[in-house]
Nucleic acid binder design. Structure first.
Lengths: 146, 146
DNA sequence: CTCATTTATTTTGATAATCAAAGTATGAAT
DNA sequence: ATTCATACTTTGATTATCAAAATAAATGAG
């Protein structure tokens, strides 16, 4: 019983470290060598879809506003991200991806999809429900602790 | 179907970011304020149990030998970790935790245990098998990609 | 309307983690 | 003995990060 918890925990810890490391390596061999994982995760948080504000993205990534600014500077200079000054409130910056940014976004997304597909290999639909339940549990736990 | 994969993926991404952030905050409020999360993860990798070599730990953490050296220097100075020169091969450094290090290890471990307990709340024994299967899938995927 | 306050972002200055590459010490093998 | 390999450390440079101060725009009270 106790042992099972430890095994699952160790597996999660290992998996997390390995994912970051593999993503870093794949990135270095790809056409997007000029990005770090952190850059990639910023692009992922910015998203192809909404036009989030800088503050929203900083919060999601748990970065201070200043750090986010410099992240955006970097990504703007490298032509992955663009700043869009909001017209109703001219203090706020909305963030969007350039063509190159969207390309990167899709590539990263494809990797994650592959990963989740393999995660769910041979997992039956009702078993997926179990996994979703456990993840919800975890998210609740984290919410209580923040 | 596609949607489910996306939901699970987003949840995992969110969860991992949040765990790091929460651990960082808890640490800052604890008696172990002098440690960063990275320090804590090094202590976790060093473990209370085996006496791993510096190389082993570096590999587990995906750090270069040089970086591990400076991590160990830091943690030794703060009295969490001790170096033990191996007697059969005097090039090898084995790593152990001090009393303070073991205290930290247990505290961190307790947090993880709580987390996994809540993850597995209302999850039946045979459902746990599902989760273990999915994690094994993921570890295999990661092994193929490294 | 104007001044004070709040909000969103940027700038600045300092620090810590990291890497690659060179260095040191030890061990292994021919 | 000499060379090669291994385990770790040192060095020098770079990058991500933060806290705090600065800027710029919006909001609200009178």
């Amino acid at each position: 019983m106790k042992k099972q918890v430890k095994t699952i925990n160790d597996s999660l810890v290992r998996v997390y470290g390995d994912i970051l490391w593999i993503e870093e390596n794949e990135l270095r061999q790809s056409r997007f060598k000029d990005l770090t994982i952190k850059d990639m995760h910023a692009i992922n948080a910015i998203t192809m879809y909404d036009k989030k504000t800088a503050s929203q993205v900083a919060k999601e990534l748990h970065l201070t506003p200043g750090t986010l600014t410099s992240t955006i500077n970097r990504l703007e200079k490298k032509d992955y991200v663009k700043r869009i000054r909001s017209s109703n409130d001219r203090r706020v910056i909305r963030l969007g991806l350039t063509k190159k940014g969207r390309l990167m976004y899709r590539a990263h997304d494809a990797f994650h999809r592959m990963m989740i597909d393999s995660f769910l290999k041979d997992v039956e639909p009702d078993e997926i429900k179990t996994i979703e339940k456990a993840l919800r549990n975890l998210e609740n736990f984290l919410r209580e602790h923040s």
